[in-house]
Amino acid sequence: MTNSAADPVLSVADLRVTFGERTEAVRGMSLSVARGETHCIVGESGCGKSVTSLAVMNLLPRGAARSAGHIRFHGRDLMGLSEREMARLRGDKIAMIFQEPMTSLNPAYTIGSQMAEVFERHRRAGRRAAMDRAAELLARVGVTAPGMRLGQYPHQLSGGLRQRVMIAMALMCDPELLIADEPTTALDVTVQAQILRLLQKLQQELGLALLLITHDLGVVARMAQRVSVMYAGQVVESGPAAAVFAAPTHPYTRGLLACIPVPGTVRRDEPLGSIPGMVPRIAPGFIGCGFRDRCGSAMPECAGAVPLRDAGGGHTHLCRLLPDATRAPGA
């Protein structure tokens, strides 16, 4: 199979995740990530971004149900795979990094044994070969003295170092898709920058398809080629990162961008932008725009079906407003 840009590594269409009768966490999410591309899913807590990543991995908690048009990995639909086939992909061709490096490593084992285990499982490799591979990857993610680190336990490592270990562990089997769920949120700012730089470097060198989940628009601006802004379980705006930042078309995206202090344009005596209200709880069968209660441009017709608008160049948004209309200043 070829890896041209037209053939995305991951393609998700119309993904829905429900938690029982009362909550629909993801409502018709679609996205695609190509080889060598970083696709950021950005949104506030509870908007369904992490649930989306878990749904792709089929690791949703008990009580959650997913349905989708398709979830294709290299053209192969993951929806039809058995748990055993799915387990074979996880950690091998699809790897995942979690938010909390402090708790993502098992305290009972050394770094080396945890890293080696993944390799042994998927590659049927011996311990020695797996350890060599682990040492090589630790060096690659910028861990000094990898030989010594292999014998250490997680509690002996700092947060930044542990996240590097998690990244190295994710790369053990040469994955094609890396899903990183808020990989820098729990780290302090200087370490965040280092980890992001590392991810970017690795992605370019290895040609990874990177699905990066974050709530931080700064991370998006720095990393993403494509961005999907999620709100209340839906992608409300999606497109090339440059286009979305230059000309946000959905009121929610505009609101988010207005919350960021920019040196030079924000004055000390003026309050920063904020979006009033809270994310509504969405039950299955919810109709209309989920943002209408908080939106400055809301109209009675926002309670009806919302059209998907195209601003050109793959830049789409979900709003009754036309792209040009939302560009008017003020919310």
Binding site: M57, A87, R90, A95, F98, E100, S104, H122, M169
Partner: peptide, 22 residues
């Protein structure tokens, strides 16, 4: 509920492996 259990699942570990080794 700790993350390393989720991480083990995401790395393709079997149920038996998670119970006995994690």
């Amino acid at each position: 509920t700790l993350d390393y259990i989720a991480a083990a699942k995401a790395a393709g570990a079997s149920r038996l492996h998670i119970l006995l080794r994690e």
